[in-house]
Design a protein around this nucleic acid. Structure first.
Length: 213
DNA sequence: ACGAAGATTCACT
DNA sequence: GTGAATCTTCGTC
């Protein structure tokens, strides 16, 4: 496989469209001791200050300030004092939107991923090594040290497609949508918005989507 | 300055 | 299904 850098155009436009478009896209991690590649299978869209579920609601100062930067920057934060989550800043500069990468399918460097996950719980199947936003970060050794890096150009961590044809859409199946996970605090108007996207029936999803209508 | 809650995961009942 | 782990950030006093 020869990953090809993702075009910046893929991150322009409405955040929910970007979130949908990132499904099937590759995430390439290289910390100098071996390459790890995964394919994104689940995402969530988070808007700017108006989105009560988004970290951007606190404004451009603070931990989420990076969300107001240019498209392609990484926003990595710590939740529950122990887990990291990876976001891709998107839209126009100053907009404050980003897409949370919730789950991915391991493609290359599985041994490194297994080693990076501390539990090593035998019940964990390989296809679920990155089945969750924090599991993904753990498997790829993503933490706050990578906050703010350019995911379109940085060699340590970048987005890519594996299509041999320039501009061709990344391979992917049917897309399912649903409410974002764990954002009830934002109130029904925002919590119920179907801004969670996933590849239908994929084994690497973080959790099931409600049955499609 | 203080306290509550969190874009989660894992182990255990 | 329930609860603990663990610490940064934000809202409020």
């Amino acid at each position: 496989m020869i990953p090809k850098a993702l075009d910046a155009a893929a991150l322009a436009g409405p955040v929910e469209e970007v979130a949908r478009g990132l499904l099937g896209v590759l995430l390439v991690r290289d910390d100098g001791s071996g390459r790890r590649v995964v394919r994104i299978v689940e995402t969530e869209a988070y808007g700017g200050p108006e989105d009560r579920a988004s970290h951007a609601r606190a404004g451009r100062t603070g931990r989420a300030g990076i969300m107001f930067g240019s498209a392609g920057l990484a926003y990595v934060y710590l939740v529950y004092g122990m887990h990291h989550c990876l976001n891709v800043v998107c839209g126009r500069e100053g907009e404050g939107a980003a897409v949370l990468i919730r789950a991915a399918e391991p493609i290359e460097g599985l041994e490194r991923m297994r080693a990076a996950r501390w539990t090593g719980s035998s019940s964990d199947r390989d296809d679920r090594l990155c089945a969750g936003p924090a599991r993904l970060c753990r498997a790829l050794d993503v933490d706050r040290a990578l906050d703010g890096l350019d995911l379109l150009h940085d060699g340590r961590l970048h987005l890519a497609i594996d299509s041999p044809l320039p501009g061709a859409a990344p391979a992917r199946g049917r897309v399912v949508t649903g409410p974002r996970v764990g954002v009830a605090y934002a109130g029904p108007e925002w919590a119920l918005r179907p801004w969670r996207f996933g590849l239908a029936g994929h084994a690497g999803l973080s959790r099931p989507f409600a049955a499609t209508v």
